[in-house]
Nucleic acid binder design. Structure first.
Length: 299
DNA sequence: TAGGCCATCTGGTCCT
DNA sequence: AGGACCAGATGGCCTA
């Protein structure tokens, strides 16, 4: 019904951050799957849901909808000049629900629905933000990761980055460990060269053992050292392949689809290479400016 | 056509 | 009291 469409359409006009996302996001394209289309096909969803309500309520609901629209918009941050609607809703909310008239109940219900919708939209925005930093192929031709796949891939990615950091620290300590005195003045940053204060994280320092991670909290380090930890273990934590039904998604998300298998034969010991980037990209990948993205060949 | 994924609605519960 | 959070139900869309 148009009611939901009006509510949904009122959201993009909201000054909130999700507006930017929703505006730039062409969910109707079908890339996001049925759900993606659902968010912008308010008519379909509303028709389905409104069909639950008695048909005779439609007109009433529509009138209530317009009033509730003001309330919703006001709730979303607009400077609503119509205080009557908000006052009516507040007044009705003060009543017992049993005493509320049907339009008032509907208005309250719409308000709650809108709030819940906004909450879910915010959740989806956060989920998309997570997808954006995930090392899998992005693009219009690549199917979007499902929510569960996104979460599982994110978990794997965090674990893998943790292990990568540990591995790099270990290598650095191996390289510079025996030449600490010689390398120290030049190799260390200014603060470190001065050694004004003991730096546990210094490569040559005994305390720089990976077990005492200077950056990550102990929990993160311990999580990296899961049973059978090490780089190969990260690949073993990947989610079930069944989560990636489409081969394109599996190819686009190596962390999910088994892209870690090449680790054993790779000349570069940096586990970052397991993700997607060629060995010479891991510096930029560590920088996080541009996470390695697989070739958008998928599909 | 079945199954997966999703958005939305809705009622309940918990928190501030 | 109001809002946030959660889970179940429902129905639409898409893909194999």
């Amino acid at each position: 019904m148009d009611s939901d469409a009006s509510l949904v359409s009122s959201r993009p006009s909201s000054p909130e951050p999700d507006e930017l996302f929703l505006a730039g996001r062409n969910k109707g394209g079908g890339g996001g799957g049925g759900g993606g289309g659902g968010s912008f096909t308010g008519g379909t969803v509303s028709s389905s849901t409104q069909s639950d309500s008695p048909p005779e309520l439609s007109a009433e609901l529509r009138s209530a909808m317009s009033a509730a629209g003001v309330v919703v918009v006001d709730k979303l941050g607009f400077k609503s000049s119509s205080s009557s609607a908000s006052s009516a809703s507040s007044a009705s909310s003060k009543k017992d629900k049993k005493q509320m008239t049907e339009p008032e109940l509907q208005q309250l219900r719409l308000k709650i629905n809108s709030r819940e919708r906004k909450r879910m939209h915010d959740l989806n925005i956060a989920m998309d933000g997570l997808r954006e930093v995930m090392p899998y192929a992005h693009g219009p031709s690549v199917r979007k990761l499902s929510k569960i796949a996104t979460l599982l891939l994110a978990r794997n990615y965090i674990l893998m980055l943790t292990n990568s950091l540990e591995e790099m620290k270990r290598l650095v300590s191996e390289i510079y460990g025996g030449h600490h005195a010689a390398f120290h003045p030049a190799a260390c940053p200014a603060g470190m060269g001065a050694h004004s204060a003991p730096l546990p994280a210094h490569p040559g320092h005994p305390a720089s053992h990976p077990a005492h991670h200077p950056i990550l909290p102990p929990a993160a380090v311990s999580s990296a050292s899961l049973p059978g930890s090490g780089l190969s273990a990260v690949g073993s934590i990947r989610p079930p392949h069944g989560l990636l039904k489409s081969p394109s998604a599996a190819a686009a998300a190596p962390g999910l689809g088994g892209g870690f298998q090449h680790w054993g034969g790779m000349p570069c010991p940096c586990s970052m290479c397991q993700v997607a980037a060629p060995p010479h990209h891991h510096v930029s990948a560590m920088g996080g400016a541009a996470l390695p993205r697989l070739a958008s060949d998928a599909k």
